[in-house]
């Protein structure tokens, strides 16, 4: 059994293979941008997770009404606390509470970790190419944090992130990304703005991620990277198609789409 498989197995005594709903308590909240908030959680019995996985969050009103949504895990596998970064969706039902209302001491339920598909571990060792749109950066940040926490093994993995945001103020983890990028062996970070005209001295791109952007900022297809693309559906599809057109191996392109559903 590999470490990956071990992490995917529920702990002994979890009551079979079904994922249990667990109480989670907010320990800390941090504003990331005007719309995104990170919640640091205490989750007793959390079995551990892989970078890229998500949780289902369930909120229960006093009259028993429940609403459930999925959120990516922002913290790396061995972090002492689980962290979620949630972007508030206008007209949404769960994200406004998580990103706006939640305070230390508040409690809700979650289950996870979920999903073995969109996951990465330093043990995979091939070059790592990450492409994010908006809050799609969250599971990719868990991967970069995992890489940074893995010492020499992490530094040995060539890594690049290409991240598109609407405006500078919408860039989640901006300072941390800058800090990581200047560390010895740190990942190469490329940013692009899609709505706002870039400020003076802007080093990044100023367009939606397209084939030329990927060719300029990605890990070359000849290096056979593992590619992870996460963002809103139209962005993910445009990027995935462009990657195939550029000669990336389709089987190594992993995608995760998210955004508002009909009921927010």
């Amino acid at each position: 059994m590999t470490a990956t498989e071990a992490a995917l197995r529920p702990p002994a005594g979890a009551g079979g293979r079904r994922l249990a709903w667990r109480p989670a308590e907010v320990v800390e909240r941090m504003a990331e941008t005007r719309r995104a908030t990170t919640l640091v959680l205490d989750v007793p019995g959390w079995p551990g997770h892989l970078a890229g996985q998500h949780v289902d969050v369930r909120l229960t009103a006093e009259d028993g009404y429940q609403a459930q949504r999925s959120y990516s895990i922002a913290s790396p596998p061995k972090a002492p606390r689980l962290a979620l970064t949630v972007e508030r969706l206008e007209g949404g039902e769960v994200s406004p509470w998580l990103a706006g209302e939640a305070r230390p001491g508040d409690r809700f339920e979650l289950r996870g970790p979920i999903g073995g598909y969109f996951t990465w571990s330093v043990a995979m060792s091939r070059p790592l190419m990450l492409v994010a749109g908006g809050s799609g950066v969250v599971p990719l940040m868990a991967m970069l944090r995992h890489r940074a926490a893995s010492g020499d093994a992490g530094r040995a993995v060539h890594a690049r992130l290409l991240y598109s945001a609407r405006a500078v103020a919408d860039i989640i983890y901006h300072q941390e990304l800058q800090r990581l990028s200047v560390e010895p062996g740190g990942p190469e970070i490329n940013l692009t703005l899609t709505r706002e005209r870039p400020p003076d001295g802007w080093q990044g791109f100023d367009r939606r991620i397209d084939a030329p952007t990927l060719a300029a900022a990605g890990v070359a297809p000849e290096m056979d990277p593992d590619v992870y693309v996460c963002g809103p559906t139209p962005m993910v599809e445009a990027v995935a198609n462009a990657l195939v057109g550029l000669g990336y191996e389709p089987a190594r392109i992993r995608t995760e789409r998210f955004g508002p559903t009909g009921e927010g």
Binding site: P23, L59, T60, A61, E62, G64, Y65, Q66, A67, E93, W97, E101, D106, R107, F108, E109, G264
Partner: peptide, 14 residues
């Protein structure tokens, strides 16, 4: 056991 969440009422409450 269900945890009730403070301040959450959901959207469709009327």
């Amino acid at each position: 056991m269900t945890t009730t969440t403070r301040g959450f009422s959901g959207r469709r409450r009327a």
